[in-house]
Simulated assay, not measured.
Amino acid sequence: MPSPTQRALARVPVRLRPFLVRHRRLVKFLLVGSGCFVLTTVIDLELKFTVLEHEPVVALTVATVIATVVSYVLNRRWAFRTAGHRTEAVLFFLVSAVAIGVNVIPLALSRYAFQLREPYVTPFHQEVADFVSGMVLGTFVAMLFRYWAMRRWVFTGSVPRAVPVPEPGYAAPEMPRDVP
C-alpha cells in the first residue's frame, strides 16, 4: 500500500515529481511551516483582539511559542525524520527562541520605532502594519533562519531516500535472471 506521500505525489504533474522528491525535506518543512503560520495568525489575532489588546508583541510571542511546539512535533515526526539524539529538543528550542526574537523584532520596530500605531495612524493602518511586519516579514526571516539552523545543528541525521512513485499504468521492467 502506498504511503500518503506517495499518493500525493501520484497526483502531481510528472514534470514536477523529480523536483519534489529531490527537495522533499524542504517541501515538508514548508508544509509544516504553512500550517504553523496559519495557527500563529489565528492565535495572534484572537489574543490581540481579546485579552492582549494593548500588547501586540506579547500576543505574537505567545502565538509563535505555541506554533513552535506544534512545529517541533511535526518537523520531528515528518519533515526531519532522523535517528535523533538526546540534545535535539534542547537545540530545537534554543534555535526557536532565537527565531521567535527574529520574528517579533519587525513588529516591535513597526510599532515603537516607526510609530505605526494609534494615535499616529488609523486603526486599520495599524493592523495592516502589524500584520505585514510581524506575520509576513518577521515570519519569513525567522523561517529562513529556522530552516538553516535546523539543518545545521538540530536535525543533522541522514534522511531516508524516498521510493520513486511510478506513473499510473507504468510497470517496472523485470530484472534479468541469471540462469546457470
Rank of each mutant, 00 (worst) to 15 (best):
H125C: 03
F140G: 14
F93I: 01
F114Q: 02
F124W: 10
A129F: 01
L137T: 14
L144P: 12
N75F: 02
V38G: 13
A59I: 05
V104E: 10
E118H: 03
R81T: 15
W78P: 10
L94W: 10
T139P: 06
A142F: 12
C36G: 15
A67G: 06
L30M: 15
L91T: 03
A129I: 01
I105A: 08
L45R: 08
S110T: 00
V32G: 06
V95C: 13
V128D: 01
L30Y: 10
W148I: 13
V121K: 00
T40Q: 05
F145Q: 06
R86S: 13
R76P: 05
R76Y: 12
F124Y: 03
C36D: 14
V132I: 14
V62R: 02
F29Y: 15
N75A: 04
Y120Q: 08
R77D: 14
T61Q: 05
V121Y: 01
A89C: 00
K48M: 13
L137V: 15
V104L: 04
Q126L: 03
F140A: 15
S133H: 00
V58F: 01
V104G: 03
V90H: 06
Y147H: 05
I100F: 06
G134D: 08
V32Q: 08
T82W: 00
T61S: 13
P119C: 02
T139L: 03
F145V: 13
S34L: 15
R25T: 14
Y112H: 10
A129L: 02
L74S: 13
M143G: 15
E127P: 02
T40D: 14
R25I: 08
V102L: 11
F124Q: 00
V136D: 11
T122Y: 03
